[in-house]
Design a protein around this nucleic acid. Sequence first.
DNA 1: TATTTATAATAGTATTACTATCATTTAGAA
DNA 2: TTCTAAATGATAGTAATACTATTATAAATA
Lengths: 225, 225
Amino acid sequence: MKLQLQIKMNEALFLRNPESSALGKNILKHSVHLIYKMGFETFTFKKLAEDIGTTEAGIYRYFENKHKLLVYLTAWYWGWLEFQISFHTNNIKDPVVKLKRVIKLLATAVEDDEQTSYINESLLHQIIIAEGSKAYLTKQVGEDNKQQFFKPYKDLCAVIGNIILECSTKYKYPKSLASTIIEMAHFQNFFMNNLPSLTDFGKTKEESEIIAFLNDLVFTSLKKS
Amino acid sequence: MKLQLQIKMNEALFLRNPESSALGKNILKHSVHLIYKMGFETFTFKKLAEDIGTTEAGIYRYFENKHKLLVYLTAWYWGWLEFQISFHTNNIKDPVVKLKRVIKLLATAVEDDEQTSYINESLLHQIIIAEGSKAYLTKQVGEDNKQQFFKPYKDLCAVIGNIILECSTKYKYPKSLASTIIEMAHFQNFFMNNLPSLTDFGKTKEESEIIAFLNDLVFTSLKKS
DNA sequence: TATTTATAATAGTATTACTATCATTTAGAA
DNA sequence: TTCTAAATGATAGTAATACTATTATAAATA
């Protein structure tokens, strides 16, 4: 039996559900490849259409604009990651072990799961690192937030915040620490590979060092309080 | 006597030095206002020209494109902040006190110093929070970095990293902790105001809480090691 | 005063970010 | 199987963006 993980997406993110047709799935698949390859600012619907072998107008029937598509992809990623976390921390009782597992999942390049879906999670992980913040660093954050576009991110943050509280009931900043872990898992990776002097991992460029840093940061904070 | 702080800017950031003429200074001044008001993606040189009362071509004589202008503004900000830090921590011997002062400077909305220059530091601080990462989250980071565009940021990070080492010689991640402090001072502020459930400060929206969070995070890490 | 240099005014191009129309194919219902 | 509706493809077109180029004029400097 092959199980297909379906992530329930916010309907306001698209005009036509991209998971409902071959073209839609192609849009998701090729946009991940293209954004990964050329970066979000250089990426256009025209180029995407050419890559797929369809027309620009075809893409616009699914997504209003490329910002919505980016938000869709990030939302998908956070949803997927929350599932990964709940899957991999299932049955773990010790919250410290659980939190360590979460940090590892956040900071580790995922191996792609070509079977699972038309989305290459490994490339998407790289996109989230380099482009993810652009989904909310806009003037429309407020409206986008009202439409619940960032719910998957907030849910994930809440989940991690709760594990933090399990580790240390008295800790005062569970949510901020959770968002710090998430953001830093990605930023330290980007810095390590692109602006290495902003990190202590420039020599080896090993993800394991980021994990060690985050573990140190988090667990000294939690042990003390 | 009135002292004017001059920040030495990387010459590759501009075509003509904007500090060398009235128009150039207007470009800096109005771009800060406009980017603050409408966000970086909606901001164009055309709109900037209209705002100033000059022509698009006029702007292009100073800056190759809006990305370079953003990098210029962020570089200026980091240079300015490094000066603020060296000024405000001068004569402080205790590195812990020094680091606390640094955190406060990073996380506090600066009061504008209208005298100092044509750049409104208070608005620029807001721009750095919302747009700053876009200066390096691009496909050209590598080339931009080769041209030393991010030197002021890296210098600041190095300064903070050294203070961290003064606090605790054995601490293993001074640079990563420094970049974490810098980024989180800004991201927690953005989250607090725009996606409050990602923080523990949504109720009060007080900068002082971000400072308390960062102090807690940093000093438990440093005390332990 | 002559001469360089900066600015203003204007024009023009390629690309981006869309919207609209209509013909054709495909998929599902009768 | 046939009819119908929906999705796609092909094509066109528009306004805005991101520039480059040209020439005239004004300001600064030698």
